[in-house]
């Protein structure tokens, strides 16, 4: 009944982490990809994404390394003692090499389940960079959009599967500047315009308030929104508004016109707490009370890279088992 998907990243095995920056990283990454795909498939997911992003060090650095016009001066805090390299735009943004193709070709060889390519969105690339060159954020964002679009077209040319290629555009920065949502949508739509055999979903997480994206987001050319809710939910069982306070906002989104496929984050990726399947069940049943069941997709809040692989596996198992419980209730 419910389609269960991964959102993106998984923690890399220790042997791959210690090989980072060395030649052997390139020989070990395929082994890590294979192991991660097997782990995700054995957890019971229908869609394993790109196999945990084993070929990418980080969602921002990876695409930036394949673009001209940016330089790094160092790292900036993400949270606690987690830092990311934040580049400065010092020239015109242009794609110089493939950011995703090698990984995409390899995962097609390995995966038995559906795949979906997560790609860092142009608005997020813009927002997470210092702009020392472009006169406006829109102009910068549109050049990032053109570069990302070239990536997607290249993947489409190498797609060997049946049906449309699934691409997930990750835009965690989408709601960062509520006054700029129309700009975000314009940049997003420039990225996906005239793509033929591609099914686009969009992942937006850690928004202060998803409602701030409306009404402009309704113009976004995406078939699915995969969003984060468990981070702000309680861990109590129940399908009442209070127990499920993290998911209540979906009702508001519906009132504002949302009716696309919605990927609901039923697993909090920032804690080692393993959600019992019954909690996952209740999160799904709560949303199923008011949202079109056929348009509900099940996923974690975000990529699981901040958890150990053991914890991530247990969380994915819980997601699968909890979904089964919900399906049983609903049938």
């Amino acid at each position: 009944m419910f389609y269960k998907q991964e959102i993106g990243s998984m923690k890399k095995p220790d042997y791959l982490i210690s090989a980072y920056g060395k030649e052997e990283f390139h020989t070990l990454k395929k082994r890590a990809l294979k192991e991660t795909v097997e782990l995700m498939e054995s957890a019971g997911l229908d869609n394993i994404g790109i196999g945990g992003e084993m070929y990418r060090w980080e969602m921002y650095e990876n695409p930036v390394d394949h673009l001209d016009g940016l330089v790094y001066y160092g790292r900036v805090r993400s949270f606690d003692n987690r830092y990311y390299k934040k580049a400065s735009v010092v020239g015109k943004i242009k794609r110089k090499s493939s950011a995703y193709l090698e990984e995409f070709i390899d995962v097609q060889e390995i995966a038995k389940k559906d795949i979906k390519v997560p790609i860092t969105g142009p608005y997020t690339l813009m927002d997470w960079s210092f702009n020392d060159y472009y006169p406006s954020r829109l102009e910068l964002g549109l050049d990032f959009a053109r570069a990302v679009r070239e990536e997607i077209i290249e993947l489409e040319e190498h797609w060997k599967g049946k049906g449309p290629l699934r691409v997930q555009i990750d835009e965690p920065a989408a709601s960062t500047h509520p006054w700029e949502v129309s700009t975000f949508v314009e940049i997003f739509n420039e990225t996906v315009k005239n793509l033929n055999n591609v099914k686009i979903s969009s992942h937006i997480c850690y928004s202060k308030d998803y409602r701030s994206l409306y009404p402009y987001i309704l113009e976004m050319k995406t078939t699915q929104l995969a969003l984060e809710f468990s981070n702000r939910d309680t861990t109590n069982l129940g399908i009442d508004d209070d127990s499920r306070r993290g998911f209540r906002v979906i009702k508001d989104l519906m009132d504002m016109g949302e009716n696309r496929e919605i990927g609901i984050g039923v697993i909090d990726v920032h804690t080692d707490f393993i959600e019992p399947p019954e909690l996952v069940r209740d999160r799904i049943l709560y949303v199923a009370k008011f949202y079109d069941i056929e348009k509900i997709i099940i996923n974690p809040d975000c990529g699981l890279r901040t958890r150990s692989r053991e914890v991530a596996y247990k969380k994915l198992r819980s997601l699968v088992e909890g979904t089964k419980l919900a399906e049983k209730e609903l049938s």
Binding site: S78, F79, A173, T176, Y206, S207, N231, R232, H270
Partner: peptide
């Protein structure tokens, strides 16, 4: 509590 975006940055606080 949960990680929350600090102002309009990409830095998060509890």
């Amino acid at each position: 509590g949960p990680l929350t975006r600090y102002l309009e940055t990409n830095t998060f606080y509890r």
